[in-house]
């Protein structure tokens, strides 16, 4: 059982508190995604789980063993780096087999396991190449192969797709999801891309400024964000968030409504405003509306909804889709 438990993890760099008490349970076989803005401490937390960095205080358990002070190799983890970190002087085969050869496994066992991993990732034809002769997507696969081959209980990924172009990224997202299903291993995946988080995760952990904002399934976070930060972070375009009267009427600090949960009409509605700006996305259209009482309101409408800049429009929030948040 390879669950990961973090208990009250703190981390300081030169007196600056980067992680401020992280408690977290990742269950066996779960695909868990850490999201949060740049600099919030995602990589730091991942590196502490991997054992590359020590926590300033707190405890880490992997597979019910206390590994707080264990070396990376004794934690049963494997890691895929954003830069791939392939060894430039070794062939693909030797890159993948590097860890096994350090562990002094017999030659034929190494060969067999490398071949199995290569097959899984369609790398068989590339085994004798050097990393510099590979494309970005192929390098990515080799990096994953290097992780797979060791049969780790927990996989750690630090923004593994961020160096790929958009098309390749969505392909790799799918492949990683399939890989997870196939290996049935625990995976912890860091990204600041909320689409990756939403599409891949069993569980999302939203981090902000060194603490956990909320933990939940993608849909839980989408439908029931507990804090304004999570509400604003998950979903695109961002949820409209307003302080003031509307919120106070419901005893909250902040009122939120997602752009896709506003109904637009040219005749009547709750809020009246003027269209400032329109973004056509094809299937959808994003409308920016200047509302006197609120400020700017962003709404998503059907792609063929005919509107023009400068015209008047009414927006109405859908029943039961409103969020009332406290700070």
């Amino acid at each position: 059982m390879a669950s990961v438990k973090l208990k009250n993890i703190h981390k300081e760099f030169n007196g600056v508190k980067i992680l401020k008490g992280i408690d977290l349970d990742v269950n066996d076989g779960e695909f868990c995604v850490f999201v949060g803005p740049s600099g919030c401490g995602k990589s730091t937390l991942l590196r502490i789980i991997s054992g590359l960095d020590d926590a300033s205080s707190g405890e880490i358990e992997i597979a019910d063993k206390d590994v707080t002070h264990a070396d990376p190799i004794d934690r049963g983890i494997a890691m895929v780096f954003q830069s791939y970190a392939l060894y430039p002087h070794l062939t693909v085969r030797d890159n993948i087999g590097f860890g096994l050869s350090l562990a002094k496994r017999p030659k034929n066992e190494i060969n067999e396991r490398v071949n199995t991993a290569a097959k899984m990732l369609q790398l068989e034809a590339l085994l004798d190449r050097k990393p510099k002769d590979l494309s970005g997507g192929q390098r990515q696969r080799v990096a994953i192969g290097r992780a797979i081959v060791r049969n780790p209980e927990v996989f750690l990924f630090d923004e593994p797709l961020s160096n790929l172009d958009a098309a390749l990224r969505s392909k790799m997202r799918l492949e990683l999801t399939e890989l997870h299903a196939e290996l049935n291993a625990t995976m912890i995946y860091v990204t600041h891309d909320q689409i990756e988080a939403m599409t891949m995760a069993d569980k999302i952990v939203v981090l902000n400024a060194g603490h956990v904002e909320q933990v939940g399934t993608p849909m839980e976070l989408y439908h029931h964000p507990k804090t304004p930060f999570v509400a604003g972070f998950i979903g695109s375009p961002k949820m409209n968030l307003f302080e003031g009267q509307t919120a106070q009427e419901h005893g909250a600090d902040i009122y939120g409504i997602r752009p896709e949960h506003l109904t637009l009409s040219t005749q009547t509605g709750k809020w009246q405003g003027v269209i400032k700006h329109i973004e056509h996305l094809g299937a959808d259209v994003i409308v920016h509306i200047q509302v006197q009482a609120l400020g700017t309101l962003v709404a998503r409408a059907d792609g063929d909804f005919a509107v023009t800049t400068g015209s008047e429009i009414y927006a109405t929030p859908q029943q039961g889709r409103e969020h009332f948040l406290s700070k």
Binding site: P72, I73, F81, L102
Partner: peptide, 27 residues
């Protein structure tokens, strides 16, 4: 030489001297 290489090797189970002699020195 990116530090990620050292760390990848550490994750792969290399001892400090192995990181140097097997990964860094050849480069």
């Amino acid at each position: 030489i990116p530090r990620d290489l050292d760390e990848a090797a550490i994750i792969d189970g290399a001892k400090p001297w192995q990181v140097f002699f097997k990964v860094i020195l050849p480069l």
